[in-house]
Design a protein around this nucleic acid. Structure first.
Lengths: 114, 114
DNA sequence: TTAAAGCTTGACATCGATGGAAAGGTCAAA
DNA sequence: TTTGACCTTTCCATCGATGTCAAGCTTTAA
């Protein structure tokens, strides 16, 4: 399908789809027009990308994650490294949450003080 | 104290201290030189600012939070609003964590699949 | 054949915290 | 007085996901 259709079906702007392609998150072929051709899988892939972005991962990390998320027969070691990356991300988030929680508690203390 | 001393004592670059001042997070007086003069409290304030930034709050939010964190006799309603802001931030973080957790779990599923 | 809609690339803008450099004023010690 | 350390302002850069606009090509419908 062409970019417009993919955009309509995913709710993601054509601009972003081109960006994702440039980042290596989407694979396309080109017609003799130069028009990008996306296949059906892209609809799912775009959804996965959006979910991972929303989760706070960068396109760079997502590029590593995607083949795995797509179920493409992963090499064990490679996935172990990937697992480390993801755990690192999680740890960062957890740490942030903890700090924010502390800040909130500290603030709650001030607010509670008559 | 001058900006260099505050920088040394807090480990925050002079560049950033000027930025924090411009954002309304630090109050200074100026000598006849034009040199900024920070008082002792600023050392504490800078630490609070760093902590809140690390927690993921923006300078804009921090500007609202600081007087309260400093214990300056808060107006009840104002602090209630502030409380809402902070809770909103917390909710956002929690939601992100949840999504990331889901993504991780999904990935864990792929990884576990032999 | 023409107008509209869709596609292409490329360039520039945004937000926010931060770094850095340039050009110049001030002050203290030698 | 000169040097060097410290201060000032102003401007530009960065990263990453996204928007937007322009100029130009293609395809489709009228």
């Amino acid at each position: 399908m062409l970019i417009g259709e993919l955009s309509r079906r995913t709710g993601v702007s054509a601009r972003l789809l081109r960006y994702y392609e440039a980042q290596g998150l989407l694979h396309t072929s080109r017609g003799p027009n130069g028009y990008r051709h996306f296949d059906e899988d892209c609809v799912v892939t775009v959804r996965q990308v959006r979910a991972l972005l929303r989760a706070g991962l960068s396109t760079e990390v997502i590029r590593s994650v995607l083949p795995c998320a797509r179920g493409e027969r992963p090499d064990i070691e490679w996935c172990a490294e990937l697992w480390d990356i993801l755990n690192g991300e999680l740890a960062t988030m957890d740490q942030r949450i903890d700090e924010l929680q502390s800040s909130r508690d500290a603030l709650a203390g001030f607010l509670a003080r008559p």
